[in-house]
Structure formats: structure tokens, C-alpha cells
Simulated scan of single mutants.
Amino acid sequence: MIRRIAYFLIPLAIAIVLWIANLTYGNYYLERGAIMFFAVSIVYLFFKIALQDLVTRKVSDPRNQYSLHRAVSIMFYAAMVLAVIGTWIPNIRTLAVTYGIVAAGIAVALQDIFKSFAGGVLLFISGVYRVGDRIEIDNKYGDVIDIGLMYTTILEIREWVEGDQPTGRIDILPNSLVLNHTVRNYTKQLNFIFEELNVPISYESDWRKARDRILEIVRKETGPVADAAEGQMRSLGEKYFLEKRAVEPSVFLTLTDNWINLGVRYPTWARERRTMMNRISRAILEMVESEPDIDIASATIDIVGFPKPDAERAKVSGPPDR
């Protein structure tokens, strides 16, 4: 807080000094400089001290507080630029023409930058994603750790790492991507996703028993997630048109040439996909080991014969004709 007060007092002091000098020498530039530094100090007082302090006191949620702080920073820099330019071009018509010419030239030369800026403003207004969300955009997956005016920073997941776990890399994405790419948000309104696990069992196995035991295991492991998922789906249905959908674990049977495939569908927390699959897989393997009438199936190949070697084929067919 002391530093912010100092940043407010420094331009204010400069403005006072320049104004006193202007009263003494009557110089146009001294007058404009005094007005500019005074405007800068007022803008800083309003945005960085009064408004930012209000956000800190009134908003308790850390993610919302962070987003509002970033929005205040954007408005602060925009107001600062307008204050500086407006000070040196007092005529409104000239000011409007100047803004238009400068804006047109900059828009053509720096269109990618302006797209990123527009994307950043859109993110703060619409909340397509926020800090802490897990997103996918332009085939990049990760957890959002910062949303700036021009770029979004994510902690990357996937790539060569399985199970939606971090790679350890930081990706810097331009905010312009939200304008022309689909954004998939894993945690915006639903904190869970559905996962599937295929368990092949032999035709000699007791498939009914296997189905019931696997369903029992999955329900035990995903109980808290399924309860929370049902409540979240109900809340989503109140906001959007959404037919009632089952979120509890299910097992679906598929007949193949080699085995009976038990497709297990279950909800899991978006950030615990691999952990949940590991727990369920271990529990299913332990169950199979304890049940003699349930066997995991695998592909088999029956070899019905071998080709004869070249020497043996030549001996059978005899010497070639001359």
C-alpha cells in the first residue's frame, strides 16, 4: 500500500512543480505537462488504489479476485493512454481525427496483436475460461495458470504423457485463439468427465458374475464422484435444455470373435482420470485372481502349418527342365 501511495504522490508532485513553473514562466508545455501528470495521478488513484482496494475487500474468492484485478489493470492502462493523448490534443475534433488515423494505421500493422487484445477483453467479460480451469484449445491441453491482456499461460498436459497428467512444460497461447477456435472447458460447470475401460473375458467365464462384480467395484470407487456429478448435472439442466442423463457407472457387453468385452463407463474427477483408472484396474485384477470362473481373455493365433523350406521343395519337384 505504501508503494502505491508513493506512485500516486510522485506524478502529483511533478504536476505541482510544473504548474508553479508555468505560473512563473507562462509556458504552454509546462501547462500541458502539469495537466498530464495530474491526470495520471488521478487515474492511478482511482484504479490502482480505490478500485483495486474495493475488489480486494469485497471479493473473497481467489479466482474471482484475480480476474477482477486483471480487468482493473486493463482499464487502468487504457485510461492512462487516453489521459496522456487527450492532454496534448485538447481540441475534440482534432483529437477524434487523430484517434481515428492512429487507430486505423495500428490496426492494419498490428492486427494479430489487436486480435489477442480483443480476445483478452472477451475472456474477462464472458469468462470462457478462468484461472484454474482445465481447457483444450487448438489441440493444446492444460490447466490455466494465468490470463494476461495478450496471452494465456497453461501448464501443459497430455502430449507424450498418458492420462491427462502434466508434462512439465508451460505453453503461452495468444488470446486471439478464442476468437476462431473451439474452446473445450473441462471444469467450467462440470468438474467431472466420463471415462471408459474395456475388460475382455473369455467365453468360458461366468460373464454375469463378472459384470456384477465389476459394477460393484466401480460403484465403490466412484461413489462420491457420481453423487457430485448428479447434482452438477441437475444444476446444468436448470440453466440449459438438458434431458436427464444417467451418471452412475454402467457395464455394456459386446460380443467379439475372441472374447466378451465388458465396457465399463464411469464418472471421474477431471484431474483424477489416470488415478481413478489405476484404482479400478487394480481392484478388477484382484477380483479376477480370486474368482476361478472368471478369466481375462487375450488374442490367440492357431498355427495350422509351416511352409516348406526351399531345398525341400526343390527335392520334391525334381531338377528343372533343360
Rank of each mutant, 00 (worst) to 15 (best):
N180I: 07
Y151V: 11
D143Q: 11
E156C: 08
T187G: 11
K140S: 15
D143E: 15
D164A: 13
E195Q: 14
G132L: 08
E136W: 06
G163C: 07
F192Y: 10
Y129K: 04
D138Y: 08
L149K: 00
I170F: 07
I125C: 05
E195M: 12
Y151S: 01
I125V: 15
R158K: 13
D133Q: 01
D146V: 05
G163Y: 04
K140T: 15
I125D: 03
V183R: 05
D133M: 06
I172Y: 13
L173T: 11
G132F: 06
R158Y: 07
T152W: 06
S176Q: 12
V178I: 07
E195H: 08
N180L: 06
I201D: 12
Y151F: 12
V161R: 04
T187F: 02
T182Y: 01
I147C: 00
L173K: 00
H181L: 00
N180Y: 02
D133H: 05
N198I: 04
K140L: 15
G127E: 11
Y129N: 07
I147N: 06
R184S: 13
G132R: 06
G127A: 08
I201C: 08
N185I: 02
I201F: 10
R134H: 10
T182H: 01
H181I: 09
T182K: 05
I157Y: 04
L197T: 07
K188I: 09
D171C: 03
Y186D: 13
I172R: 13
V183I: 14
R130Y: 10
T153M: 06
I145N: 00
D143A: 09
K140E: 15
N191V: 08
L197C: 02
D138P: 00
R158P: 00
P200G: 04
L177G: 01
Q165N: 12
V183P: 00
V131N: 07
N198P: 00
R158D: 14
W160E: 14
I125L: 06
G148L: 03
F194Y: 07
L177A: 06
M150F: 14
H181N: 06
I193D: 08
L149G: 02
S176E: 14
E156I: 13
G163D: 12
V131T: 15
G142S: 10
L197M: 11
Y129F: 15
L177M: 12
V183G: 01
E162H: 09
V161K: 03
